[in-house]
Amino acid sequence: MDQLSLFVVALVVDVVRPGLGLVTCGEADFSGSIVRQDGRYLVESEAGDVIARVGSYREGAVKLARHHGVDSTVLDVTVEFERIEL
Results as ranks from 00 to 15, higher is better:
residue 79 V to I: 14
residue 68 H to I: 09
residue 74 V to Y: 08
residue 43 V to M: 00
residue 59 E to F: 03
residue 75 L to A: 11
residue 66 R to L: 14
residue 82 E to D: 07
residue 14 D to S: 12
residue 19 G to I: 07
residue 23 V to A: 01
residue 67 H to N: 15
residue 72 S to M: 04
residue 60 G to H: 06
residue 66 R to N: 13
residue 78 T to L: 13
residue 65 A to I: 11
residue 27 E to Y: 05
residue 40 R to H: 13
residue 67 H to S: 13
residue 69 G to K: 12
residue 15 V to N: 00
residue 67 H to L: 10
residue 71 D to P: 00
residue 53 R to N: 12
residue 74 V to P: 00
residue 48 G to V: 05
residue 36 R to Q: 15
residue 57 Y to W: 10
residue 20 L to I: 06
residue 52 A to T: 11
residue 73 T to D: 10
residue 31 S to R: 09
residue 19 G to Y: 08
residue 79 V to E: 15
residue 44 E to K: 09
residue 31 S to G: 11
residue 42 L to S: 06
residue 10 A to P: 02
residue 5 S to Q: 06
residue 49 D to H: 09
residue 20 L to R: 05
residue 11 L to K: 01
residue 76 D to Q: 15
residue 23 V to D: 00
residue 24 T to H: 06
residue 86 L to M: 01
residue 45 S to K: 07
residue 84 I to R: 14
residue 16 V to K: 03
residue 59 E to N: 13
residue 52 A to E: 15
residue 44 E to A: 04
residue 70 V to Q: 09
residue 27 E to P: 02
residue 84 I to F: 03
residue 65 A to Q: 09
residue 37 Q to V: 12
residue 29 D to V: 05
residue 39 G to V: 06
residue 43 V to C: 04
residue 82 E to C: 03
residue 59 E to Q: 15
residue 69 G to N: 11
residue 55 G to K: 07
residue 58 R to E: 15
residue 79 V to M: 07
residue 11 L to T: 00
residue 12 V to Q: 12
residue 71 D to I: 02
residue 77 V to R: 00
residue 74 V to N: 14
residue 58 R to V: 12
residue 38 D to E: 14
residue 38 D to K: 14
residue 39 G to M: 07
residue 18 P to G: 03
residue 83 R to D: 07
residue 44 E to S: 02
residue 21 G to L: 04
residue 64 L to V: 08
residue 78 T to E: 15
residue 74 V to G: 13
residue 29 D to G: 00
residue 47 A to Q: 12
residue 86 L to S: 06
residue 8 V to N: 08
residue 75 L to D: 10
residue 61 A to Q: 06
residue 25 C to L: 02
residue 26 G to W: 04
residue 45 S to H: 05
residue 6 L to K: 14
residue 57 Y to E: 10
residue 82 E to F: 02
residue 61 A to G: 08
residue 44 E to R: 08
residue 80 E to K: 07
residue 17 R to M: 06
residue 17 R to K: 07
residue 57 Y to Q: 05
residue 37 Q to N: 09
residue 69 G to W: 09
residue 10 A to C: 03
residue 24 T to A: 02
residue 13 V to K: 00
residue 1 M to Q: 04
residue 15 V to I: 11
residue 10 A to Y: 02
residue 23 V to G: 00
residue 1 M to G: 13
residue 9 V to Q: 04
residue 8 V to E: 09
residue 30 F to K: 10
residue 73 T to V: 11
residue 26 G to H: 10
residue 77 V to K: 02
residue 51 I to G: 02
residue 22 L to N: 03
residue 46 E to H: 13
residue 76 D to G: 13
residue 36 R to N: 01
residue 34 I to G: 07
residue 14 D to A: 08
residue 34 I to Q: 06
residue 51 I to S: 01
residue 86 L to I: 06
residue 80 E to V: 14
residue 77 V to Y: 01
residue 9 V to R: 01
residue 40 R to L: 13
residue 57 Y to S: 04
residue 62 V to T: 11
residue 6 L to N: 11
residue 54 V to D: 04
residue 7 F to Y: 14
residue 73 T to F: 03
residue 68 H to L: 09
residue 60 G to M: 07
residue 85 E to V: 10
residue 51 I to M: 07
residue 74 V to F: 08
residue 79 V to R: 05
residue 49 D to Q: 13
residue 32 G to S: 03
residue 32 G to P: 02
residue 27 E to M: 13
residue 15 V to T: 01
residue 22 L to M: 04
residue 74 V to C: 11
residue 51 I to R: 05
residue 63 K to H: 15
residue 74 V to I: 12
residue 28 A to L: 11
residue 29 D to C: 05
